[in-house]
Design a protein around this nucleic acid. Sequence first.
RNA 1: GCCGAGGUGGCGGAAUGGUAGACGCGGCGGACUUAAAAUCCGUUGCCCUUUAAAGGCGUGUGGGUUCGAGUCCCUCCCUCGGUACCA
Length: 827
Amino acid sequence: MSIRQNQVPLKFEPSRIDSKWQSKWAEDNLYKVNNDSDKPKWYEMTMYPYPSGDLHIGHWYAFSPSDCHARFRRMQGYNVLHPIGFDAFGLPAENAAINRGIHPKTWTMQNIETMREQLQSLGAIYDWNREVICCDPEYYEWNQWIFLKFYEQGLAYKQKAPVVWCPSCQTVLANEQVVNGCCERCDTVITRRDLEQWFLKITDYAEELLDFEGLIEWPEKILTMQRNWIGKSEGVEIQFGLLNSENALISEQTITTFTTRIDTIFGVTFMAIAPEHPLVESLTTKENSIDVKKYIEQSKKISEIERMSTDKVKTGQKVGSFALNKFTNEKIPIYIADYVLPNYGTGAVMGVPAHDERDFVFANKYSLDVKRVVSETGNEDQNMSEAYVGNGIMINSKTYDGISNFEAKELLAKDIEKKKWGKKTTSFRIRDWLVSRQRYWGTPIPMVECSKCGIQPVAISDLPILLPDDAEFKPSGESPLKTSIDFVNTVCPKCFGPAQRETDTMDTFFDSSWYMYRYLNPKYKEAPFDNKLVKSWMPVDQYTGGAEHAVMHLLYARFFTKALRDMGLVDFGEPFLRLFNQGIILGQDHEKMSKSRGNVINPDDVVTGMGADAVRVFLMFIGPWDQGGPWSNVGINGIARWLNRVWTITTEKYELGSETMINQQTTDELAKTLHKTIKKVYEDLDKFKFNTAIAQLMEFSNYLNKTLNTKAVDPLVWNSCVRSFLLMFAPIAPHLAEELWEINGYKYSIHSESFPIWNEELISENVITMIVQVNGKVRDKIETAIGMEESAVKSLALMSSKIQAHIDGKTINKVIYVPDRLINIVI
RNA sequence: GCCGAGGUGGCGGAAUGGUAGACGCGGCGGACUUAAAAUCCGUUGCCCUUUAAAGGCGUGUGGGUUCGAGUCCCUCCCUCGGUACCA
């Protein structure tokens, strides 16, 4: 794919120009960002890449438009910080190490080397002095520092939690390593294991994370996804009594369920609890114990697989005991069922088949009663073919009959609280963030376990806790750090006796939750970030990146900033004020790019042949940035042609011949076109509408081309048009713009210039094309002066022979007049 | 299933409720050339028409609102993305 057929030859040497300016900019520190500036600040960030070792076209699609936007802000007069770094910890490094025997550190650092070079070929305004590499101890030391702060605040805690386990590889798997319930590497069916693991209490912030007030401009789609992810629902917790099969109360104990539909309490016909529920054992009667055990075993194994592949198979197992509905005094059977999740609500569900789809399916399968208690407009039929989940009037609910179910919800909740049977409560879907990874290539969690003092935090003065080089990271069934004796054996920070280090490492989302602070001064030694710089630069004004990070990364980052704020470390609550999500670049076949499809485009090949600017411009031109779109080897030729034309227009000698006449009208028209162009390009770049901005510039260059042929304007006017054009071109095609700026004899650098400003007066028209419609259909167009009266336009329109032909003596019922736009004659 | 985005020429895509198809690709015709490529000029939604003029039809489907709908409302179909037993 390195040689494309029918490639349009360029009039300039792109590789020469690219490297010429890239090295000049670097030498001059042109893009070094000054922290002290009179200009207003603009912090524009793009999500940093994982150093996979190869910069693919998707990276170009993410980075070149964001660079263009940052450059535009720069030319608008902002002091712009547009940093880049590497998300350098993570699984692929460890996999490469396991497969190829290279140390993860070596592999990662080599990849960063090559990717840094590839990134430089973009010609972006990155300030490389601020590069962040999070596998560097200089960075992860502060991960540990922040972790200790979280621990101090009670936001970090250790608890048993299940992990996905591959019995064959003897290793913990990440969710994405599980394919159809099997290990992606060896295809073995996975199981689960309970391990003591570290969590961050993001749930403390669940309510506040739902508040998006502090954000200026985020896509509604992302907010919805975050809302759903947090999953707030308000309901009632209510206790049920417990009976054995002889109707005797088992104990004073009760079982609590959470429901959002307390209005259906009279329709409860069974209770379903999670197989993991703590009361399962005590509720299981002798005659059911074998079956219950079997069901629990089975759900442990199958649940994950079933969940992924099948839809809504509801199974359960009777435990033998009964629950007592305190409102009806009815005795209802208790089941364990894997559709009830142990970690949501109370892990127990009151089954109301008539008004819940899942309960309905379950009741059908086990022949349980269906009892309708909410009536949809008078329908009291008890033979239901499906659950009725809507609202209505209460029936079969004793004293609550006849009122709306909304009202009943309120009354019942109050009643329950009065009787002390339960309480109103709010439930969240979001769970605490599990940050422990049983992996080598990550930040060591700075904790120590002492047999005398228990879990102890490492002293801040002992940071960083370095990742040892000698750990065996090949899978063994334990955290790899356990194999480094020197690492594990340490001294208790409290009693100075022998102790062991925590051997889990941190989730890489920990790194990316605060890297925006570190960019400000990645070398800062006193703290994770320099407060003075945080005050002047944060929060990030514009963040761009893929929508795949809608919930995890973006939610974690918001949580971090709120937690840091509550510790008094920052004084704002949102890290990213504006967010824009780019789409996905597709292959030429309109399919997602993948090696197996063979439709991958290697940007290096194209850049070598056509230059960075051609690639940048094409990627921005194919369509709206947030929609993504297909690459095209043929389509990029159009860009090459355009760049050639730009080259010609801006380098050709413009001189008036002896017989050339300067035409005032042509000059005025050119000025108007220029100013219209400036307005359109300015407004489009502002809103990330690169495709239409470029289209407008193309139109303008076509117009300039015509002017070049007629030479009917003064050379001074011509030169100022070329100058303005180049300035608009600069953020889009920075190398070529700089070269042409130099050829035209302007002072280096174009990238230190301001974006042109348009003059609204020059844009206003005095003659417009009036559309004349008959019955809403365009029949003629007439030139009229601006601001013409309706009556005048009407008589002009009626004079048109084309219009006459359509009216043809019929009576005019009505005339719609839109000033300076159209007139519609209705007959 | 639910949530979100979208469906416009041969293709990528433009269009504050007011000229549908900007800009570009591709195609066609011409100029230049021994020739080809490149370049330049012209042309290009479909139908009818020898051509032109003049019509007619056209933004996934079917309805509606409006003087006027790609755009607003309702029904359905399809594509893509996200998410999933949340009680």
